[in-house]
């Protein structure tokens, strides 16, 4: 093993251990374990209904697993429900459906949580918001309402909104699946920049090009289990498991 891998196992920022989750009688996560190092980009792929989104949602407490242990940024999420708010402040999430607040402008979407959660002044929150809108490439849309923006612009505002909280980890739940094809690139470009800056990212996506290029590791999930984890190179070129091979043969 290389030195990087040793460091990875020493101090993971996300540690998921033997997690089980049921929705009623449906067993959606079966003994899932995963470690993510600080600064690492892990892309989760797999067929729909395989539990990818549920796993992501467990990491910021939107779903609570019935069994197992989840530690994020040194805080054990599964032990005390009160820890959820502390974890959420450090973990940004981007949703498939953007979930911008429709009654607020783009700028207000980005400043709201800064002001009520981080207690920043209006001036400081707006300065940060404008800088982030600049960063995601739409500085001129500060005063637009979500309904006036395209899907790609909305998703970039949503990314800026999450980044404004200075998260240590960013979770992306199929961020481009609701977008028209010509808007996918503008969102992926923002995510690629973010990865390059060293953000720890967990990305559920069907964009194989993005996974191959940006991911440090790729995890393949099927039927509630993590079937295989590997670097993009080994994962795409020589997948070990039969289920991975079958999935890849369908999509590539």
């Amino acid at each position: 093993m290389t030195a990087i891998a040793a460091e990875t196992s020493a101090d993971p920022i996300i540690r998921v251990e033997h997690v089980h989750k049921w929705f009623g009688s449906l067993h959606v996560l079966r003994d899932v374990s995963l470690e993510v190092a600080s600064g690492e980009v892990v892309v989760i792929i797999g067929p729909s209904g395989s539990g990818k989104s549920t796993l992501l949602r467990c990491l910021n407490g939107l779903e609570v697993p019935q069994q197992g242990r989840i530690v994020v940024n040194g805080i054990e999420l599964t032990k005390n429900p009160r820890n959820i708010n502390r974890v959420r402040a450090e973990v940004g999430m981007v949703f498939q459906q953007f979930n911008l607040f429709p009654h607020l402008t783009a700028l207000e979407n980005i400043t709201l949580a800064q002001r009520v959660v981080r207690r920043r002044s209006r001036a400081e929150a707006e300065r940060i918001a404008r800088a982030l809108l600049e960063k995601v490439g739409i500085p001129d849309k500060a005063d637009a309402y979500p309904a006036q923006l395209s899907g790609g612009q909305q998703q970039r505002v949503a990314i800026a909104r999450a980044l404004a909280m200075n998260p240590k980890i960013m979770l992306f739940d199929e961020p481009t699946s609701a977008l028209d094809p010509e808007m996918i690139k503008e969102v992926l470009d923002v995510m690629r920049d973010l990865a390059r800056e060293g953000m720890t990212m967990l990305v559920v996506t069907h964009e194989m090009g993005f996974a191959r290029e940006v991911a440090d590791r790729i995890a393949f999930m099927d039927q509630g289990q993590i079937v295989e984890v590997g670097t993009p190179e080994t994962f795409f070129r020589s997948p070990k498991e039969a289920r991975t091979q079958a999935f890849l043969s369908k999509i590539l």
Binding site: L62, G92, N99, H103
Partner: peptide
């Protein structure tokens, strides 16, 4: 939509803050 609450909570807002700043302004309309 449920996503509104989830977005507010995942930004670190408490349930009460999500209600006050995100859900109720839309619901009242």
């Amino acid at each position: 939509p449920r996503g509104q609450r989830e977005a507010a909570l995942s930004l670190g807002m408490s349930y009460a803050q999500a209600m006050r700043y995100v859900i109720l302004p839309q619901a009242l309309r």
